[in-house]
Amino acid sequence: MGRLRRTAAAGRPPDDGLTVTIQRGDPGARTGFRVATFTPMTVLDVLLAVQREHDPSIGFRFSCRVGMCGTCGVRVNGRSVLACQTPVPENGEPVAIAPMAGFPVVRDLIVDTTPFWDEWRRVTPYVVPAEDAAEPARIAPDSPERRAIDPSLDCVQCGVCFSSCGIAGGSRTFLGPAALNRALVLVNDSRDTATQERLDLVSGPDGVDRCHYIYGCSSACPKGLDPAASIRRLRRGR
């Protein structure tokens, strides 16, 4: 792998190169780059190539590189994605990378996701168990409870849905897709005892009624979850 990268860096600009534009925070910082492509190549690979071959000072964040940590959220050609889960276009179209919308920018592509976590925190995201729960509950995998919960698990709290929602990133508070999805899981979880508090919150002024049916969350979720459906179900269920 190192060999591939080195030839590409040393040689003349290859025909299958990719033009990348990166939104930078520092005035005067270089924004246009051309990197050699390989297959498979993700946007994260593009960022790493830019960092290693062109500009080591570029700021971006990543950790696990396989879609589990949820820290490499950026905007690619206008829309929020996880960089590690987004393949570069095969037709050589230029790629524009910008920080995720809806969050304050810290530096270059790094954003401060505090607004997301503030909302997440509000739904009491942890289970509030009954006092006497000592043994794991016996819950059949095909029970209605699990059928309601299972499709909504595996959220990685990357904030991509928050950033793709037309409402959550705005100035008025809205719990947002991820927090509401979490609320739905806990509302359905028979081990939890804080159901009513959560239902009161989600049916309140910052809850499900602020959803405007844009479906940005569901179409952007890198884990294939459907927070919009969770919001609908919370509406029906309350």
């Binding site: 289970v127 168990p129 729960a133 016996r138 995998p141 699990r146 979880d189």
Partner: peptide, 16 residues
């Protein structure tokens, strides 16, 4: 399972 709130996969009879 009981206090942290993880939910692990279950057998058909509902046990872990």
């Amino acid at each position: 399972e009981t206090t942290v709130g993880c939910f692990f996969d279950r057998r058909p009879d509902g046990a872990i």
